[in-house]
């Protein structure tokens, strides 16, 4: 409860601060629309050349695209602005102040910022998911599975991003690893079946993009049994626990730059 209150305060202040840059916010709407159009065009390119991305109907593939866009929106709105601060705070030693606060430092570092420019992307992605889910004929149970799967996917993406960002305790200026992850998630726009085998294995076992977009869509569409939903959730929770443990471990090596 205390954490929810904190979150509300954090995001209100962030919003207020970003109101200084209103043009940027308005432009983000245009950008979100343009990017969605471009992504749709990307999927269309495959279908117009007769390639069904490894056995997906058009509207089903759009569901995968929608989930990838949802992740993108969270990267833009929450993950990127927060996680880049870990690297900044290690650089100038201000991480000290966070560690002294009577709040979980991981919570603080992951949620303090909220970029309003992510909102248009969120709206567009939800619209895309809504359209694709409707066109693919999801029933109530399907929507429920999709919701749970999407939540697990977001958690997983966050946990992996946080794992990556934590390495800045050692490497200091390494913010680009989060960009790297962001670009890998970009490849989750298409179902993994569209890729050749080595890429598929990479996306499942090395960087688990499969569990972020394709798997939730498959579960929602009933291509995978509901038991798989538990597997997706288990993977998310597992990586989340790992990211917590890794953060604590990394903090032992934090040397505090300025003091």
């Amino acid at each position: 409860m205390r954490y929810l209150k904190l979150l509300a305060i954090f995001w209100q202040t962030s919003l207020a601060a970003r109101m200084e840059y209103r043009t940027a916010f308005l432009l983000a709407f245009l950008e979100a629309a343009l990017e969605a159009a471009g992504k749709l065009f990307g999927v269309y390119l495959f279908y117009s050349n007769g390639f069904d991305l490894g056995g997906w109907r058009w509207q089903e593939a759009l569901l995968v695209l929608g989930l990838a866009s949802l992740l993108d929106a969270f990267f833009i709105g929450v993950f990127n602005p927060n996680l880049r601060r870990i690297s900044e705070m290690v650089q100038d030693g201000t991480l000290d102040f966070v560690l002294l606060k009577p709040v979980s430092s991981q919570f603080w570092m992951s949620s303090q910022q909220f970029a309003a420019v992510g909102l248009p992307f969120l709206l567009v992605s939800l619209g895309l998911i809504g359209y694709a889910g409707g066109a693919a004929g999801l029933d109530a149970a399907g929507w429920l599975r999709l919701g749970l799967g999407a939540a697990a996917a977001l958690l997983l993406a966050y946990a992996v991003a946080f794992l990556f960002a934590t390495t800045s305790i050692w490497f200091v200026k390494i913010f680009n690893v989060v960009y790297f992850l962001n670009s890998i998630v970009w490849t989750g726009q298409y179902p993994v079946q569209a890729y050749s085998r080595p890429f598929r294995l990479f996306m499942t076992f090395v960087l688990p993009v499969y569990f972020m977009t394709t798997a939730p869509a498959e579960v929602a569409l009933g291509r995978l049994s509901a038991g798989w939903l538990l597997a997706v959730i288990a993977v998310s929770l597992g990586v989340l626990a790992l990211s917590r443990a890794f953060w604590r471990f990394a903090l032992r090596y934090y040397a505090s730059a300025s003091s």
Partner: peptide
């Protein structure tokens, strides 16, 4: 000084290889 960061920056540009993979399947 920031070669590590440039390296990861470059790695985030590997998306064309994923498109390569998909078109190869096609």
């Amino acid at each position: 000084e920031y070669r590590g960061e440039i390296f990861f920056w470059m790695l985030s540009g590997i998306t064309p290889f994923f498109f390569m993979s998909a078109w190869t399947v096609a």
